[in-house]
Amino acid sequence: MKITFLAFDGTPYTVDADEGMSAMEAAINEGIDGIEGDCGGNCNCATCHVFVDPGWQLQVGEVSPMEAALLADRSDLADNSRLACQIRLVPELDGLVLQMPESQFI
């Protein structure tokens, strides 16, 4: 399946991902800059913050309390904010588009 990550300047990076992995893992495996994942995808650090493309917001599922708590700490929080480590890639998410915030680019 394919996932597209948009850099904050709009540059698209489309990667191949396997069903069952997280969107964070898909980005890390392809070395996408803008997804840090300092805690290794444990929903602990909020360095894999993404904005879900509005067309995909329903399909990516619900935010857990742990994730919501970490997102609440982000200064760039938006209605479509998610942590990429908490988006599990199911077949329906083939083609998913995620935008990465500027703050995750050094």
């Binding site: 309390p65 742990m66 919501a68 708590a69 970490l70 609440a72 700490d73």
Partner: peptide, 10 residues
């Protein structure tokens, strides 16, 4: 208690 953690850290 993740909310206490992030809000307390602030």
């Amino acid at each position: 208690r993740p909310a206490d953690f992030t809000l307390g850290r602030k």
